[in-house]
């Protein structure tokens, strides 16, 4: 019986780390981020956006990216001109991704598709900037 629990726990932890967990709404992500002070990744997509799909199907499925995002970000996906999120986060094209502090200050943003290696650099740079901001406060 004990072994079964261990296997289930292992499988659950494996499943958790195998994909990015998306919050249901912008409001929801702000609430959670305020509680644990993790950064927010606001992913703005559009209808029939092939590079949004490519980003989700390739970059966001990379194990290193999943790990980095799971550990350091709360994520929410919104559709441009459809979902409710602050208008100040404009998207001149899609995919646009904003990296925000829990207080919704913009740390960084990206536009377009990036492969996993490039996206990893962007995540690291955003984290460095966030740390710098936290250290100076």
């Amino acid at each position: 019986m004990k072994n079964i629990f261990i296997i289930i726990a292992f499988l659950v932890s494996f499943l958790e780390a195998s994909q990015i967990e998306w919050h249901k709404s912008y409001e929801d992500v702000i609430k959670t981020s305020t509680e644990d002070q993790k950064m927010i990744m606001l992913f703005i997509t559009g209808e029939d956006c092939k590079f949004c799909a490519k980003l989700k199907d390739e970059t966001f499925k990379d194990p290193d990216i999943i790990k980095e995002i799971t550990n350091k970000y709360h994520c929410v996906e919104v559709t441009k001109d459809e979902d409710t999120y602050p208008k100040k986060f404009t998207a001149k094209g899609v995919p646009t991704i904003y990296f925000l502090t829990p207080k919704q200050e913009v740390i960084d943003y990206t536009l377009g598709y990036y492969d996993a290696e490039e996206f990893g650099y962007i995540l690291s740079a955003a984290q460095r900037r966030y740390k710098k901001i936290k250290d100076t406060k």
């Binding site: 990206t110 740079a125 955003a126």
Partner: peptide, 8 residues
Amino acid sequence: MICHGSPF
């Protein structure tokens, strides 16, 4: 990009 992050 490795040091400076997002291009835009």
